[in-house]
């Protein structure tokens, strides 16, 4: 039943799969990003308490969700890399990490720019903020660990192990606003039964979440292609790519 998966363990098949998926991700990203930003900035109503400053939510929440989503995907790839020894999974770990780090940085920066007008401080050593900062360091740790090894097989294994250990941080980030007294406001959209957000703000937020997910997917695919090419540099199938232009 799972036999169809096997060929994708081969580098050239995985490369082709990335190529096939890439345009779909790119189109979704461009469309949703345009719609989401214009809708969020110009058409969504102002918040009754936070006025127009709340519009930062349209990039803050998506980037925060994706910072954790990207980490989960990276950890899943790391488990696959360690258990089934698939090199493509190792490459996926390294392809996701920089994208995840960027998204986490966006979440932190937009959070600071929202915190200043609302709380009066760019940064506080609050549970949510601190655990998100640790997430950024985990991404950077995975990357630097990978690049610290000359032997890429050992590098992939070490980076994968760190990625898996770091998963402990995800529930801490998620529940930090419930476990500790915090300045950070509670969840906006996880309470599906009692929606904490009006639908006139909910839908543009959804579009922006899809846009960020699309962006992470697009750039991860691009970077995975690069990692595969880099590793397979001397193989004939990479040579053939040159002739195709």
């Amino acid at each position: 039943m799972w036999k169809w998966l096997h060929p994708y363990a081969k580098a050239d098949r995985a490369y082709q799969l990335c190529n096939t998926l890439l345009p779909y991700f790119a189109v979704i990203t461009v469309v949703c990003m345009l719609v989401g930003w214009v809708w969020g900035l110009a058409y969504a109503p102002a918040d009754y308490q936070q006025k127009d400053s709340y519009r930062i939510i349209f990039i803050h929440v998506p980037s925060a969700i994706l910072s954790m989503g990207a980490y989960s995907s990276m950890a899943i790839a790391a488990v696959i890399a360690l258990v089934w020894q698939l090199r493509n999974a190792e490459l996926a770990v390294i392809a996701i990490a920089p994208v995840g780090a960027c998204v986490t940085a966006i979440a932190l920066i937009t959070g600071a720019a929202w915190g200043k007008p609302m709380w009066g401080a760019w940064w506080v050593w609050d549970a949510r903020l601190t655990s998100e900062l640790i997430l950024l360091f985990l991404y950077l740790g995975v990357l630097s660990l990978y690049h610290a090894f000359e032997d890429k097989k050992a590098a992939g294994r070490a980076a994968s192990i760190l990625a898996i250990v770091g998963v402990i941080n995800l529930p801490i980030i998620h529940f930090s606003v419930e476990w500790w007294n915090t300045l950070h406001q509670g969840a906006t959209i996880t309470k599906f039964d009692t929606k904490a957000i009006d639908s006139s703000m909910f839908w543009p937020l959804m579009v922006n979440i899809v846009a960020f997910a699309g962006f992470v997917g697009t750039v991860t695919l691009m970077r995975l292609k690069n990692e595969i090419l880099q590793r397979e540099k001397h193989r004939p199938w990479v040579r053939q790519l040159l002739n195709r232009g």
Binding site: L41, D52, S63, I109, T110, A113
Partner: peptide
């Protein structure tokens, strides 16, 4: 102007 919050909103969207 973003109702006076322009600097923060555009700072966020710009860096993003």
């Amino acid at each position: 102007a973003m109702g006076g919050y322009g600097f923060y909103v555009w700072l966020s969207f710009g860096t993003c």
